[in-house]
Design a protein around this nucleic acid. Structure first.
Lengths: 246, 246
DNA sequence: CGTGTCCTTGAGTGAACTCAAAAACTGTGG
DNA sequence: CCACAGTTTTTGAGTTCACTCAAGGACACG
């Protein structure tokens, strides 16, 4: 499947909740967005702190994340992104980037000029509302991570993240049967969860010991979904996915 | 100064970045929003998890916060809110609440029906964009807190929060001379920063020992702004306040 | 087949936690 | 104006979860 403008149109429409919700006119306008599709290697920055981007990137294939670097080499990862996500949608209304976006795996992204998106949202308030909503769900995921960082044990935080990612991937049709590709190092996981890579390792061992999951060769397998979810008080409400399953 | 509909109009316009940025027509529409002003006591819930609110609340006086309760009585506070904020603006586009909003001090809020806000944003895309932007800045603050929870020491996290709150209050004209009313208990601070109340207490003592701040009787005083900011790598960029100072 | 990255494990340390109790406030009613 | 109850702050002592440092093993890739 070669990445084409069509591919990105499909992805964009899927992101907006499926063609069913859009009028012909709206779909037409989306199909005519002037996108630039580009393949990227792993661990490549897409936008950087202090940049003033003039476009947004729609992730078509691969994984990306948002992060910030601190003094003494510390890093905080704010979110992981999968195909269909627009990790830097906020740049549409906030000029200056306050964090970085980079690929984790090799990836394919579609760049869409701000101008085109601003025209689109001005012409179609319904699309604006859906995109706005999307950034709000983003905020909900940030809050869930905050709870993990502040009030959950290492085990709970890791379990919670794995549950979240599974449901997000499943909703985009990218995972099923309680398993998925997870192209993250233990260091990445640690920087997302506020843990050291060593402790992530021990935590994974513990979860494996309870026969809840295995993470091996970049593939995560969940053996007991319900038990895993219960172990970390996982409540999927904050992902606000109902729109897709409906 | 009695709370009146006029007061809430002023506050709303101020929130949107000042009258200068709005057309007469836009200001007119805002002035005709059907608001309900209500005084509230301290520690009163405004909206709760799982609610499906039909209005948003604009905070006119006092402090509020967003939070979530976990098993075993744990609590995570996600944000603090000051006059001018609309803590539950997200309910405009996400039906079900995934967290709670409550007052911290006694407060005055103006409730605005969703319907009216949706009409307003549909009629005036510029207002929609400003409100959207506001929720994006919200997200930026969440990220800053994540960094604090994940990668900062207790001292740094506390200092960072105090810097953030000062700039936010100052931008709304509610603080100057490096001091402000902070109606939070040490338990509240702990639940925001992922610390125990005991450790918050020790951390405050440490900061006081360095003559950086005092927090006494609900008033925070910052003695050495620059040193405090440096001690926690505080970079105000993420607050995206430039709009107001310009 | 070597080099770099990532994972794994051990040992010792430290930041923050819990439990507990005393001291200082706050507000209320007598 | 004082007494009192409830909350909040403060301090001490002991514990624990997660960290750092260090080194060996596994794996991936050119």
């Amino acid at each position: 499947m070669a990445p084409t403008p069509n591919h990105s149109t499909d992805m964009f429409i899927r992101k907006l909740g499926g063609a069913a919700r859009l009028s012909d006119e709206e779909r037409e306008a989306i199909a005519h967005l002037p996108v630039t599709v580009r393949p990227l290697g792993p661990h490549q920055d897409i936008v950087r702190e202090k940049d003033r981007p003039s476009q947004c990137c729609l992730l078509l294939e691969g994984w990306a994340c948002r992060y910030q670097l601190l003094s003494e080499g510390k890093r905080q990862i704010f979110s992981f992104h999968i195909p269909g996500d627009i990790p830097d949608l906020q740049s549409l209304h906030i000029r200056v980037m306050d964090h970085n976006v980079c690929t984790l795996s090799s990836a394919v992204v579609a760049f869409i000029p701000h101008e085109a998106l601003l025209d689109l949202t001005a012409a179609f308030p319904a699309i604006a509302a859906i995109l706005w909503r999307d950034t709000l769900v983003d905020g909900a995921v940030f809050r869930a991570w905050m709870t993990g960082l502040g009030r959950r044990t290492a085990c709970e935080a890791v379990a919670h993240l794995f549950c979240e990612l599974y449901l997000k991937l499943q909703a985009m049709g990218l995972a099923r049967d309680y398993a998925y590709r997870l192209p993250l190092t233990q260091l990445d996981l640690g920087d997302a969860l506020g843990l050291s890579n060593v402790h992530v390792n021990r935590t994974l061992r513990e979860l494996r010991g309870k026969d809840l999951i295995t993470l091996h060769g970049g593939t995560l397998e969940i053996y007991k979904w319900q038990e895993l979810a219960d172990s970390c008080d996982f409540d999927p409400a904050y992902l606000h996915l109902e729109r897709r399953t409906a």
